[in-house]
């Protein structure tokens, strides 16, 4: 283990300690605690969508559909199957199962993506989102349009934090590998990608699986903060929110997603005193951002700390004759 990974490990553990301390001590108000958890959940959603929209260059507008599946599946497990018993033990399992079920449904989107790209695939994802919502509205056993309740508040800062780290870790390791490069090449030129031996179909399935798994996880966490979910919480507006966070932070950047989710969530809370006008000011800011800086805050750049050591350009090591992008 190198010195850098040792420092990372220490920081991660300190983070955990901090989470538990904050929650136990009651240092922060319940409101701020809640917002912090939303930030974490949004980071998971944003980062997983970034994999599809940012790295692979597709335009999915149905991420909330996967989130809905995760939210309902996890709630069924904790409430209906285990009747709210052994909560803290069952919960991680419930969240993982939620992710797996969400991932399994992603084939509905992945298969059409073999033949369809761009706007039409976007519409497929949109249809998926709408269908999920409509199905949930029509299952009376799950409360139909009234929603599903009875979950205990099993989500806490520590497990949101843990899932955030897992998401970042997985996405980073995926992106900086053979698979990640292949996904980027699909964004650049799918036909050429296939013609340099990349199995684009396999890659698409993989990306949709990972992205929808984490969306499902986020749904599970969300359901157990809110303790009440209904199909409307996962409508197209929710998907739009996630999209905005992705593009606000910057596509193809892990740190961008973290930043985008944080800034957006906090900003919306800060604008709360504006009442109805919050949703007038928000979209204007979004439009202005898109016109002035269409690549988002990070603009395709990555925080260097998140790039694996072996992928960083070391001028000294490769010799002085290396041309770098900044030249």
């Amino acid at each position: 283990m190198g010195p850098k990974s040792r420092i990372t490990l220490v920081l991660v553990l300190l983070g955990f300690a901090l989470c538990i301390f904050i929650e136990r001590s009651g240092l922060l108000s319940a409101y701020i605690l809640q917002i912090s958890m939303y930030v974490g959940i949004n980071i998971i959603l944003t980062l997983s969508l970034n994999l599809v929209n940012g790295y692979m260059g597709e335009f999915s507008v149905g991420h909330a559909g996967f989130m809905a599946i995760g939210a309902y599946v996890s709630s069924i497990i904790t409430v209906r199957v285990f009747h709210n018993q052994m909560g803290p033990l069952v919960f991680p399992l419930a969240v993982i199962v939620a992710g797996i079920v969400a991932a399994a449904t992603s084939f509905v989107v992945a298969f059409p993506s073999f033949r369809t790209r761009g706007d039409y695939l976007a519409i497929v994802t949109l249809a998926f989102n709408m269908i999920v919502k409509s199905v949930l509205e029509n299952i009376d056993a799950l409360g139909g349009p009234r929603g599903f309740m009875g979950m205990s508040r099993l989500t806490n800062l520590a497990n949101v934090y843990a899932w955030c780290l897992i998401t970042i870790y997985v996405v980073r390791n995926f992106v900086y590998s053979n698979f990640g490069r292949a996904v980027l090449s699909i964004r650049e030129d799918e036909v050429a990608s296939n013609l340099v031996s990349v199995n684009t179909r396999q890659m698409k399935i993989m990306v949709f699986l990972i992205a929808s798994f984490f969306a499902g996880v986020a749904g599970g966490l969300f359901a157990h903060v809110m303790q009440f979910i209904n199909p409307r919480s996962f409508a197209i507006q929710k998907s739009t929110d996630i999209l905005v966070m992705v593009y606000l932070g910057g596509i193809g950047s892990i740190f961008g997603s973290v930043l985008g989710a944080t800034v957006y969530t906090v900003l919306l809370e800060l604008l709360r005193p504006l009442g109805v006008w919050r949703w007038v000011v928000g979209p204007i800011m979004l439009v202005v951002l898109m016109i002035c800086r269409p690549t988002g805050i990070m603009g395709l750049k990555e925080l260097s700390g998140l790039i694996p050591r072996e992928e960083q350009v070391l001028k000294e090591k490769e010799g002085a004759d290396v041309v770098t992008a900044s030249d």
């Binding site: 929209n53 335009f59 739009t240 999209l243 905005v244 593009y247 596509i251 109805v276 006008w277 949703w279 007038v280 928000g282 979209p283 204007i284 979004l286 439009v287 898109m290 016109i291 269409p294």
Partner: peptide
């Protein structure tokens, strides 16, 4: 995508 996001933003703006 910037244009699409802008369109979504304009829609939200008009509604609200």
């Amino acid at each position: 995508v910037s244009a699409v996001i802008t369109a979504l933003g304009i829609g939200l703006f008009l509604e609200n």
